[in-house]
Design a protein around this nucleic acid. Structure first.
Length: 382
RNA sequence: GCGCUCGUGGUGUAAUGGGAGCACGUUAGCCUGUCCAGCUAAAAGGUGCGGGUUCGAGUCCCGCCGGGUCCA
């Protein structure tokens, strides 16, 4: 068994669990920082460890283009290459097919696309997406899916969902046939360490009936975990929640549930309460680099002139190394001066805030409390 | 002192005699499986000053003021 998942406590629909991977245990619900190019932009791996990050995201599409899967494989796999001893999940590249849509051509066989780096032509299919992810060696890898665009009509949503299901079967078939191949030349690691788990992805657009069907048929293929994809693609927030809430009901209770690409601090708390176990989002890291910081008192745009003389801590209720040491005035100065340190510190804080938020939710589930987090409010105080 | 040259938003600059634009900066907003130190928007000049030519002048002419520079 490549991974194990144990549920330790429940509170309403929410679960506190433990995900056991070849690279360590992960307490859920968990937020997974995004490190697309084998790097969480702005922060080093030792700081991520210090923050308590147990699992990171990597991206097959980006690593495939640069530095190349073969290069990473020769260097001992993604963990060794990026010097990250804990767990990694790689996204299959399905979402990039969606988000880079001007350059793509989707067929039953797979996707032909042009590199955003140099315009060169490439082909990604369920089979070679699996091959790439086996080569990278993440603990959890994702089926190659098609992220349905929004809005889409019902015919389009169904056709897209059906193709994702066929691609899921092909992904699993290829994975089962090749997962035991020793991928890393010259580096001798145990079979346990290189064993991987392949997760399926539920699609179906915003249609609840299609979501149900997608969930049931994806479960029919059988995966050790299930993701909800195709959300946060431009739809109204209440609709996102409605689809998640509805889809969760059709997912097995004893398998990890991963909601892809979500969300704000308020949203990750809400989804954890609905029974989501894993989430990832670029928001904390990207927003940090753009000067948007999340605090116990709501959002702060640190670039605003009002903070130029503010000597107080960024978030007085936050215990992170940034809030313990630096003032808002200093953080604002660093941002205005375009100092790299601004991105570093802002990212550390936002990740710390997200991780703390999830820890608080987990704690409250273990205590059986209905309310998840006292440190998150929906709006900043006036 | 003679000659030449240049004076345009905060800064740096652009505009065959015909709607004063761009960049940076400033201010605000956005960011949800990262093409992201990204994107959007707003405020900000009536062109050093005064006259003239012209239907029309940042642009041409004259004078003044200020900067640069060559010569002596």
């Amino acid at each position: 068994m490549s991974i194990e998942f144990h549920i330790e406590a429940k509170s309403g629909a929410a679960r506190a669990g433990r995900l056991i991977t070849p690279h360590g245990e992960i307490e859920t619900p968990v937020f997974m920082p995004v490190g697309t190019l084998a790097s969480v932009k702005g922060v080093s791996q030792d700081i991520l460890e210090e923050l308590g990050v147990r699992i990171l995201l990597g991206n097959t599409y980006h690593l495939y283009l640069r530095p190349g899967v073969e290069q990473v494989r020769k260097l001992g796999g993604l963990h060794r290459f990026m010097a990250w001893p804990r767990a990694i999940l790689t996204d299959s590249g399905g979402f990039q097919v969606f988000s880079l849509n001007e350059l793509r051509k989707v067929t039953e066989e797979g996707v032909t696309f042009r590199s955003h780096l140099d315009g060169s032509s490439h082909f990604l299919s369920p089979e070679n997406a699996m091959q790439a992810q086996i080569g990278l060696g993440a603990d959890i890898i994702m089926a190659f899916d098609e992220c349905t665009e929004y809005p889409a009509d019902s015919a389009r949503m169904r056709a897209s969902m059906e193709m994702t299901l066929r691609w899921a079967e092909r992904s699993k078939k290829y994975f089962e046939e090749h997962k035991n191949e020793v991928p890393w030349n010259g580096f001798h690691v145990g079979a346990a360490e290189r064993s991987q788990a392949l997760f399926g992805i539920v699609q179906g657009g915003m249609d609840l009936q299609l979501r149900k069907e997608s969930a049931e048929r994806t479960i029919g293929i059988s995966f050790p975990g299930y993701a909800i994809g195709g959300l946060s693609v431009g739809e109204p927030r209440p609709l996102t929640r409605e689809v998640v809430e509805s889809t969760i009901e059709h997912l097995p209770a004893d398998k990890p549930r991963y909601l892809m690409g979500v969300g704000t601090p308020e949203e990750i708390v809400a989804y954890a309460k609905l029974g989501i176990d894993m989430m990832d989002c670029v928001l904390p890291t990207r927003a940090a680099r753009h000067g948007l910081l999340f605090t116990s008192d709501g959002k702060i745009s640190i670039k605003q002139a009002r903070y130029a003389g503010d000597d107080s801590a960024l978030d007085p209720n936050c215990g992170c190394r940034v809030c313990q040491r630096y003032s808002r005035a200093y953080l604002r100065h660093l941002y205005a001066a375009n100092e790299v340190l601004a991105q570093v510190l802002n990212t550390i804080h936002n990740l710390s805030f997200y991780l703390d938020t999830m820890r608080t939710v987990r704690h409250s589930i273990l205590l059986g409390k209905e309310t998840g987090s006292s440190c998150v409010q929906s709006e900043p105080k006036p």
